[in-house]
Simulated scan of single mutants.
Amino acid sequence: FAVVSLSQADPSVVERTINEEEKRIHTLIEHLNNILKTHNMTGEVVRIQGGDPGHQIVEKTKEMNVDFLVTGSRGLGKLRRTLMGSVSDYLVHHAHIPVMVYKHTDKEHDIHQ
């Protein structure tokens, strides 16, 4: 993850940063889909972008005719989750299909970044 001040950044630096992030995202999605295949699991990891994440995910599950949704949870504190909302909480309450929320440990989170 790179932080760039857009007000002072050279456009080529911004473009290069965006391209590097796009490549990293593509590689991660490919890796996760390969894990599914390795374990003979039917499913697909897809990228959701733009708009409200919870709503976008619910709409994508309908579009893809998904039977079951697995999502992660960062485990924010109750106060922060109350103020900001929680995508996983939204999915549990608004998805038309069963939702499994996986809360990983901080150690697991550090490994996957």
Rank of each mutant, 00 (worst) to 15 (best):
T38L: 15
I29N: 13
R24S: 08
R81G: 01
V101P: 06
A95L: 04
M41H: 15
Q56K: 10
M41Y: 15
Y90L: 01
K62V: 00
D89W: 05
V87A: 04
V4Q: 02
V3H: 06
Q49V: 00
V45Y: 12
D52E: 13
D89Y: 01
I29K: 09
D89M: 03
V46A: 15
Q113I: 03
E63A: 08
K107A: 09
L32E: 15
H93V: 03
E22N: 14
E59M: 13
V58A: 07
D52C: 08
L91W: 10
A95W: 11
H94N: 11
L76N: 09
K37P: 10
I35D: 14
N34V: 08
R47G: 06
S88W: 00
N34G: 10
G54P: 06
M84G: 00
R80P: 00
Y90S: 04
H96Y: 07
G54N: 03
K103M: 10
M100W: 14
N19A: 14
D89Q: 14
L76S: 04
N33M: 05
D52L: 03
I18C: 09
E63M: 08
Y102P: 06
G85D: 03
T71C: 15
E22R: 07
K60C: 11
V101F: 06
P98W: 03
L28Q: 14
A95Y: 06
T27Q: 11
E108W: 06
L83M: 04
V13E: 09
Q56T: 09
R47Q: 15
V4M: 03
H104K: 14
N19W: 02
V45D: 11
T42H: 09
D10C: 10
S12P: 10
H31M: 13
S88T: 02
R74Q: 06
Q56H: 02
V13M: 04
G75A: 13
F1P: 00
M84T: 02
T17D: 05
K37Y: 04
V87P: 11
E21F: 00
I35R: 14
L79W: 05
N40A: 13
K60Q: 15
